[in-house]
Design a protein around this nucleic acid. Structure first.
Lengths: 205, 205, 205, 205
DNA sequence: TATGAATGAGTGTTCATTCAT
DNA sequence: TATGAATGAACACTCATTCAT
């Protein structure tokens, strides 16, 4: 029944090609039409493969969306982990999280639309799918906050489990604004500055 | 072509009854199954009317969801406007906005689930539907912030248009946490306190 | 179950008013949209009555169409019978049948469209409904032909039962042409002349 | 959007099989129930394919009916064109047109019922659908008449554009009689003879 | 008689998924 | 692996008809 072959990450070169091609096509199509209005046949066409081929790489349509999230969020997490290691103070780190998140999506509008619009969407996601990489992402923020508390830079009565969600919500909303507004009134730098100052002041000891 | 009868609010008692009954039923059913998995026939059954009757009050399935948002958000806005008039300082007002939003949804889980999960959802919403009441809601926050700036309570370099979105995003995310988590680790009071302090410090002059 | 009140012809003045009003409205609406695309509510609106009122005068939607045919064809038959009595030779009588039929419909385009397009249509008509008045109409033609044979004006080996159908078919087709063509190439007089000469020569002894 | 594959005629054997199978099934089902009372699922069952398969070969339900007309009328036209070439005088040719038309349908009662009852039917046909093959058929008759005029066999004051319609109407009506009457009083030969003599005398110089 | 709100049966069409090649 | 023709379950919406007033 489950004929999907590639559940892990490291695969043969050839397969990977097609897996990646389908994923890129899916992001493009999802962004254009929304998940529910996107047809498998459109994705197949965009990817240059047959409809049936998609089922060699993905369990079903939902699986494509899940894989898109997981894989792209995984990349974001890897990038954040990598960069945060090079910084040595929570203030710069938080600023980097904020700037990194907004810039990333600003540069990949299609992916942003998909994540912004579809992430919270269907029951498949909020009910059945446990977004592992999403939790990991939140935890990166929480780690930075905890580090700030430990170093005495941030207030001591902060609950990282709450703050991480508030920050993520704020970032996500600003990202939606950035991506869904045809002619945004505020530049990305403005958003980053306003948001950073808001949170850093709000958190500071 | 459009046979929907109740576009305004104040109607005859009988019609209103049914309009309201259908809306309540829809919220319940949407919350349970998600919008796309909810069948018109389920809503009709839950409301105790015939399938066809729904189309006397709503243009189509999407229209039900839109009306739910608009009407409920309208109530929230009315409540906020009403209460904020009784307070005289921006700090208390912002605290009220935060507490009001979270408590409201905490007390109406079904509606919260619908709004949280479906609001940003399909192209119908982020692409075709212009959420008038939602904009109004954001502007209430922005008004409070502007007032705070005028009174010298909040910083002068704040951009209300950015801050209102950041705050809304944070609140929304916390609401999702509250509603979607089976056994939340944090009580609503905790969330309100953490969020209020975070933002009030972040905004303070 | 059958609540239709007016099955005969001679009725009270008041009822007749509404019966007639609905019928006229129906002809107009059927002609515009075709039978299957016409809604009871449209007819009701056009007639200036409530939907339910129609069911006080007609058994159901099909019944309206049947009544339209029967009543209008009845009028045609009455007119033909009346006029044919005043003529004394089969040649003039046949000419009159031909001219009468085409002129009648040319002057009532809406009715013509309905009869032309809908008469042969639905199973209700070709299968269940026995078009009494239609048979009567055909028999008027057949009577004229028989009379012509008796008087020695028309050939003796003619079968009136066949000829009446051929003539009706020809007339009907020309009527369709007249009515459905936006800018007919041939005037009604031309059609009458061509058709009369064709059939009179074809029938002549 | 339009996924129908077979718009032309000559296709691979497999596809053609199914296209033809569905068409035959449709004729059978339409003849039995009338177009509006025929369900896609019935046609699919009769054809031995899945409901969805029909939509690989036809745009929609209307399209099936249109294709039936066009293809069958196309065959009639081809047959007529082929046979008429072998005859050398308009009298025999017209006789052949008359006999050919009636015999063809007499031998394919289902198709006859469909064409007789549905051809003039719905707005789809008289209003939106332009019956190309039907016009072609009429023009074959008109060509024969013109040829007869040129050869001095038929009268000179004939208008072929009118006569072709009158003849078609007559034939069509006789065909309906033949097909819709349970026990026709007149044999097909009788009809052909009566009709041929009627028209040939009517047209003769 | 007249109304028109309410009913609910009925169906064309889409599209994710399968599987023979 | 790859294909794409075939499948068939699933569902929003319409509208003729009813009936309480």
């Amino acid at each position: 029944m489950n004929t999907a072959k590639n559940n892990g990450q490291a695969k043969g070169r050839n397969n990977n090609d097609k897996h990646e091609k389908i994923m890129r096509a899916a992001i493009k199509v999802f962004a254009k039409n929304g998940f529910h209005n996107s047809k498998i046949s459109q994705i197949a066409k965009e990817a240059g493969v047959a409809d049936g081929t998609i089922y060699l790489y993905f369990k079903n349509k939902d699986d494509i969306l899940i894989k898109v999230f997981e894989e792209r969020l995984g990349e974001i997490n890897a990038m954040l982990n990598d960069q945060l290691n090079r910084l040595d103070n929570p203030v710069d780190e938080l600023r980097f999280c904020i700037r990194g998140y907004l810039e990333l999506f600003a540069n990949n509008r299609a992916l942003a639309e998909v994540i912004a619009v579809e992430l919270r969407q269907s029951h498949k996601f909020m009910r059945e799918y446990v977004p592992a990489k999403f939790a990991e992402y939140l935890n990166i923020i929480s780690r930075v906050i905890r580090e700030g508390k430990d170093k005495g830079v941030f207030r001591d009565n902060l609950l990282p489990g709450v703050i991480k969600r508030a920050l993520f919500g704020a970032l996500d909303e600003l990202m939606v604004y950035l991506v869904m507004t045809t002619a945004p009134k505020y530049a990305i730098d403005t958003l980053v500055d306003q948001c950073s100052e808001l949170f850093l002041r709000g958190l500071s000891a």
